[in-house]
Computed example of a mutant assay.
Amino acid sequence: MNTEYDWITTPITAGLLRGALDLERTAHGLLPHRLPARARAQCADAQLAMAESQPSGVRLALRTRATAVELDTLPTKRHYVGAPPRPDGVYDLLVDGRLAARGSVAGGSTLTVDMATGTTGHRTGPVGTLRFTGLPATVKDVEIWLPHNETTELVALRTDAPVEPVPDRGRRVWLHHGSSISHGSDADGPSTTWPALAASLAGVDLINLGLGGGALLDPFTARAVRDTPADLISLKIGINLVNTDLMRLRTFTPAVHGFLDTIREGRPTTPLLVVSPLHCPIHEDTPGPSVPDLTALGAGRLRFRAAGDPAARASGGLTLAVVRDELARIVRQRAAEDPHLHHLDGRALYGEADYAELPLPDELHPDAGTHRRIGERFAALAFAAEGPFGAAQPSRKGPI
């Protein structure tokens, strides 16, 4: 700890955090979760456990005169066998809503993943310290966005002036659920994932339930969405169901209906937007699963390919084209009785022409520039005056 400042230590509590659905006390401190404990108890999948504990969209939100902030954390770094080392997770400091600085915490624990065998290993490491200085000495709102792709235990918060939670600003709350793209894969920072960018442009508060590899129409996720107070809900459905080769069309259709039914049990009139998959050439007409390209991995690059058989479409195999058509049909059917249900073709956010200009580096995930494009387009389409979220009024007073 730096002794240059007269530090005040403030307990990290739920009142100082935004974007988490649950907080777990650990031996080191506080671990934010993006799925509640009941949901986590219903699934033993290691991929989902990793994804939901990575705090995409989770941030400390403080009102303070402090000019210096220190945050002790215990991060968990990921290392993929055969791939280049991943950079340390990024923390974004926002002052009155504007990105003011970025930092990282070295060290921490390590999760080693062997993509070829599916095995993992864990090594515990030391707590590290993040430090921001030179902040204006006026009353301001300070947000520290935690790394979207790095599990982060919060250990201690220190400032050189008292802090209090940011008061409710009366902004609408937007809850978004999706895959690793919504989670933020390959974005350059936690406040510049496409959902975070869209939320900033629209002036709404984000709860990001983008779960890398975990957008699989799980009933426990639907219940988490249903039970979380939100004014606006969007669901980006499809790519994970294709690249896990989890379902056939016969099971996909009722699973989508069931997911929507569960949400509507508690949120009957909340604006609800169903978004179909972005353009992704390897799976447009070829079912999953997605598998690592071992040739690229041997050359030190992480890249994916489709391992399914295009002929499987005849027996209900899911491709992105099949999923888009079926989602559009489902929403048309339900919208006859649900005027608050809407549909957005994901290719309006990132289509074939975008891929030609900004290809997916690993054939599945967009880079930082593409995240910005998707976020800007989503804000323009969904939050426009005539868009599905444009004229929505707060609905949190409805049943939960």
Results as ranks from 00 to 15, higher is better:
Gly375Gln: 06
Val105Phe: 01
Thr228Asn: 06
Ala348Glu: 13
Pro399Ser: 06
Leu217Glu: 01
Gly57Lys: 06
Trp145Glu: 03
Thr159Phe: 02
Gly317Ile: 01
Ala37Gln: 14
Leu381Val: 14
Gly387Asn: 09
Leu206Gln: 05
Gly266Val: 04
Arg25Ile: 10
Tyr355Met: 04
Gln42Glu: 15
Asn208Ile: 03
Ala230Gln: 03
Ser315Lys: 03
Gly398Ser: 12
Ala314Lys: 13
Gln393Phe: 02
Gly238Asn: 06
Asp325Lys: 06
Ser234Asp: 01
Glu24His: 10
Pro84Trp: 10
Ala306Gly: 08
Leu48Pro: 08
Leu260Glu: 00
Val139Ser: 14
Arg377Tyr: 06
Thr10Leu: 07
Arg59Trp: 00
Pro36Leu: 02
Pro136Phe: 05
Asp168Ile: 04
Ala83Cys: 04
Ala49Asp: 15
Asp354Gly: 07
Leu60Phe: 06
Asp114Asn: 13
Glu357Met: 05
Asp22Trp: 09
Glu386Leu: 05
Gln54Asp: 00
Gly108Thr: 09
His365Gln: 08
Pro147Phe: 01
Glu70Met: 14
Pro394Asn: 06
Pro195Trp: 09
Leu209Val: 11
Leu35Thr: 06
Val291Ile: 15
His257Gly: 02
Leu211His: 01
Leu341Trp: 00
Ala391Phe: 02
Asp354Ala: 12
Ala382Thr: 08
Asp141Glu: 10
Ala20Val: 05
Pro268Asp: 03
Val173Cys: 04
Asp367His: 13
Phe383Gln: 02
Asp367Ile: 05
Ala101His: 12
Pro195Gln: 11
His79Thr: 13
His176Phe: 05
Arg305Gln: 09
Leu60Asn: 11
Arg34Gly: 12
Met247Val: 13
Pro366Ser: 14
Leu130Ile: 10
Ala356Trp: 07
Gly238Tyr: 01
Val204Gly: 06
Gln54Arg: 11
His79Ile: 10
Arg171Phe: 00
Ser200Arg: 15
Arg98Gly: 08
Thr129Phe: 00
Pro136Ser: 11
Arg102Phe: 04
Ala255Glu: 02
Leu94Ser: 05
Met1Ile: 08
Asn2Leu: 13
Gly121Asp: 15
Ala39Pro: 01
His371Asp: 09
His177Ala: 14
Ala380Pro: 02
Leu297Arg: 11
Asn243Tyr: 15
Pro287Lys: 07
Ala137Lys: 11
Leu327Arg: 04
Thr253Leu: 14
Leu111Ile: 02
Ala116Ile: 04
His283Arg: 04
Ala384Gln: 06
Ala335Val: 03
Arg40Leu: 15
Arg172Cys: 06
Ile263Arg: 03
Tyr355Gln: 13
Pro167Ala: 11
Ala83Trp: 05
Leu206Ala: 13
Tyr80Met: 14
Pro361Gly: 10
Asp325Gln: 08
Leu297Trp: 13
Met50Trp: 12
Gly184Cys: 09
Leu260His: 00
Lys140Trp: 02
Ala296Pro: 06
Val139Pro: 04
Ala202Met: 06
Arg65Trp: 00
Leu154Thr: 01
Ala215Gln: 15
Asp160Gly: 09
Met247Asn: 08
